[in-house]
């Protein structure tokens, strides 16, 4: 018998008989009556409390903010999506304040050292945010691969102001996650951090040292 069969058999042939059924009577339902403004405020407050930076911008001036943020950090380059609308807008803007623009359009195997050592910042889209915990929902895609929001020291995330959910549960339900999960789905709440040395917080231990959220349509 395989280990699989042995384990399942032990679980099925319990000495105490079948485990008493547990009704799912405690079905979860989220009740949060936050207005759009409250959700944004709460998101911002919590994101800032974990060292994230939040900028409110309009649909037209967000690229100025992006350029500003990068300039302040002296970023030499910026990794952007090619297909996603934010990438298209950045390219189309031809903004003079932006550094060299890069695309993640080759398999990681082809340019690993460059990504790890030479990319200063990346900008990605988000699938929204969660007000309750100050969290971004990030679903990496072929256009915005998984390491894009992880390896460069600065991660800039673009958030549509009207895509802020109250709770994680609400996001799962309204976006119907259970019907098909992506290869990788992420909740991101602040820059990478650790408290493993005597409970003292330090940022950027493995992932980005900085997380900057540009909220578009928050004017």
């Amino acid at each position: 018998m395989s280990a699989r069969e042995q384990i399942l058999q032990r679980l099925r042939e319990r000495r105490d008989g079948p485990v008493p059924e547990v009704p799912a009577s405690l079905t979860t339902s989220m009740v949060r009556d936050w207005s759009a403004a409250e959700k944004l405020d709460r998101f911002q407050q919590l994101m800032e409390s974990v060292h994230g930076e939040v900028h409110r911008t309009s649909a037209t001036d967000w690229i100025d903010t992006l350029a500003d943020v990068l300039e302040k950090r002296g970023a030499r380059n910026l990794l952007i999506p090619r297909l996603h609308d934010i990438g298209a807008q950045i390219l189309a803007s031809d903004h003079p304040g932006l550094p060299e623009l890069l695309h993640y359009d080759a398999p990681i195997e082809d340019w690993r050292p460059t990504l790890f050592n030479d990319v200063d910042a990346a900008v990605t889209s988000t699938r929204g945010a969660i007000a309750e915990t100050g969290t971004l929902i990030v679903w990496p895609t072929a256009d915005e691969p998984r390491l894009m929001s992880l390896v460069p020291p600065v991660h800039i995330a673009i958030l549509e102001a009207d895509q802020i959910f109250s709770t994680f549960q609400e996001a799962i339900a309204l976006q119907n996650w259970a019907s098909r999960m992506p290869t990788n789905a992420l909740l991101v709440s602040g820059p990478s951090k650790t408290a493993d040395i005597e409970q003292t917080l330090a940022y950027g231990v493995h992932g980005p040292k900085e997380l900057i959220v540009i909220v578009v349509g928050a004017d």
Binding site: P107, I108, N184, A185, G207
Partner: peptide, 20 residues
């Protein structure tokens, strides 16, 4: 309230994806 990352993995790298 939540950790920095909550990482949900459902698949290996799919055709066309650049990493993973």
């Amino acid at each position: 309230h939540i950790t920095t990352y909550f990482n949900m993995i459902s698949r290996p790298r799919q055709p066309g994806e650049q990493d993973g």
